[in-house]
Design a binder for these strands. Structure first.
Length: 509
RNA sequence: GGCCCCGUCGUCUAGUCUGGUCCAGGACACCAGGUUUUCAUCCUGGUAACACGGGUUCGAAUCCCGUCGGGGUCACCA
């Protein structure tokens, strides 16, 4: 563990053009260090465990993973749980499971940020000792006034620095202070972001942020800097909502004389109304996409195309993504989430999946479905075997695994079948008469293969001068209880002779 | 409101850095036609965009300025 703390990158080359003498005027120039690329790329995904892994987080993780893989590097996982009150183990589990399901395996053990509080405290002490941080005793009321004043004067910096240079002897008794970072007042902080380009913020717009709470616990921006540094992170790829944090973090890096990682702030994913995707859009965790019957490969493909492109290419295997992924290919404008496109991609991946594998995937999500949504007899092995037989016809019309389950429901139901209204209407006397004739022909089939079945049914239609549809539709109704289904010969075949014949006989009487 | 970012078909985007090959290409969606035992799939075709206004230039989606619009962020949350 001690070693871990010391695991800064080998000989970090300070890129910061500032000296202690000119602290107040410093202007860190954070250009990416091309050398560090060849030293081995280390990315990290750093979710806060306050809720499930949502779609935006999943994409951030994907980009970090891809960038690591594309450069032969590693993606680390860090759970940002400094706020103990809001962190839950359920959320941690959901995040870990979500990443695993998506196929985004991280390297090494997850790092729990709260476990590193001692190290964070150590850095806070260092900053304090060097005069780069100070204790602040401002009351909530005073802060509220400052907020109002800043807003009224149209300034963006809120805290006015009232304790920045004040004599600690003025400290009120019995008040635990917070510790603030002594941020530079003049000059600019410049970030060379791989996605956003050069982002310049005037230092006067950034106030002295709190790096340790009054109970001594570290805050986010301090912890992130210390952890990214100690973990040897070379590339911080995260949502654009962290862009302002990046400026503040850059100041802390500069104060500590540490090299900043390369930043890449990816535009956010928006809901259909154009606002940041959130719970009010019904934003879902990845486990919800799994339950809706989406394939990990489809979700990955969809996610990688949101904000990133490789010419006109739409379909990417994981290997291709890794080969082609490049931070430079990420666009700067936010994207809206579109279920239709995800569904179309999902349909593509389903069509190209192996039948047996699809059966397993469908089976795996059944326990996650509500009681009504589950097919009857879902513990009957024979039904699953029939589903496998029907899969070729099922998968070409499905957009999700749920579609397969729904369209394939006829293999699960038991006789006598429930008929939907259209099927009921279709089975008039004429149709039942046709079924009667068909029944006799089908009972005579020895070799119950798709070819034989088709031969017999077509033969019957020709013999009785019926259009094929006149035979197929009554069969469909009798066999599935519906008016739509996969090809009728496939349905007959999947059901097996005994069951098919019995279902037809049920309707002849 | 301050600060930061963004603005090509309804949506995701190519093209923008290195102005002309773009009266703007692809994908999803949508519409029409074809294949077909239903529904789909599949095939063919179609509708549809450079936010607006100036400027630079022989020439601008591409460069510059402004306007408008959208988003993010301003916690002892992360």
């Amino acid at each position: 563990m001690q070693l871990w703390y010391m695991s800064a990158r080998p000989s970090p080359t300070p890129l910061l053009l500032f000296s202690k003498i000119h602290l107040a005027q410093w202007m860190p120039i954070m250009s990416p260090n091309p050398k560090s690329m060849s030293d081995g790329v280390v990315t990290r995904f750093a979710p806060s465990p306050t809720c499930f892994l949502h779609i935006g987080g999943a994409r951030t993780a994907l980009f970090n993973w891809l960038h690591a893989k594309a450069n032969g590097g590693k993606m680390l996982l860090r759970i940002e749980d400094t706020d103990r009150k809001r962190s839950t183990s359920e959320a941690i589990d959901a995040i870990l499971e979500g990443l695993t399901w998506l196929g985004l395996e991280w390297d090494g053990e997850p790092v729990y940020q709260h476990a590193r509080a001692a190290r964070h405290g150590e850095v806070v002490e260092q900053l304090l000792a060097k005069g780069l941080a100070y204790k602040c005793y401002a009351t909530p009321e005073e802060m509220e006034k400052m907020r109002e004043r800043a807003h009224g004067e149209g300034r963006s910096a809120v805290y006015d620095g009232m304790w920045r240079d004040r004599d600690p002897g003025d400290a009120p008794a019995g008040v635990d202070p917070v510790i603030r970072f002594k941020a530079p007042n003049e000059g600019d902080t410049v970030i060379e972001d791989q996605v956003q380009g050069t982002v310049t913020v005037a230092n006067k717009n950034l106030d002295d942020l709190i790096i340790a709470r009054s109970d001594g616990s570290p805050t986010y921006n301090l912890a992130v800097v210390v952890d990214d540094h100690d973990m040897g992170v070379t590339h911080a790829i995260r949502g654009a909502d962290h862009l302002t944090n990046a400026s503040r973090q850059a100041q802390i890096y500069a104060a500590l004389e540490w090299e900043t990682p390369v930043f890449a702030h990816v535009p956010l994913i928006h809901g259909s109304d154009g606002a940041k995707l959130s719970k009010r859009h019904g934003a879902l965790g990845v486990e919800a996409y799994r339950a809706m019957g989406y394939l990990p490969a489809a979700l990955r493909n969809y996610l990688v195309r949101m904000g990133w492109s490789h010419g006109d290419d739409e379909i990417f295997s994981t290997a291709q993504m890794i080969e082609w992924f490049d931070l430079a290919g990420i666009g700067r404008s936010p994207a809206r989430f579109d279920f239709e496109k995800l569904a179309s991609l999902n349909a593509h991946y389903i069509k190209n999946s192996d039948d047996g594998e699809l059966v397993n995937l469908v089976r795996a999500i059944v326990p996650e479905l509500s009681q009504e949504a589950r097919p009857p007899n879902s513990d009957d092995e024979a039904c699953w075997e029939k589903l496998a037989l029907a899969m070729p016809g099922l998968k070409e019309r499905a957009k999700t695994l749920i579609d397969i389950l729904d369209a394939g429901r006829f293999v699960f139901v038991s006789r006598p079948l429930d008929m939907d209204e259209k099927a009921e209407n279709l089975l008039d006397d004429e149709a039942r008469a046709v079924l009667g004739g068909l029944l006799v022909s089908l009972e005579g089939v020895e070799d119950w293969s798709v070819e034989q079945i088709e031969y017999v049914v077509r033969g019957y239609a020709e013999k009785t001068d019926l259009k094929l549809g006149k035979a197929a539709q009554p069969l469909r109704a009798a066999l599935t209880g519906r008016t739509t289904s996969p090809g009728i010969f496939d349905v007959l075949y999947a059901l097996g002779k005994d069951e098919a014949v019995a279902r037809i006989r049920d309707q002849v009487r």
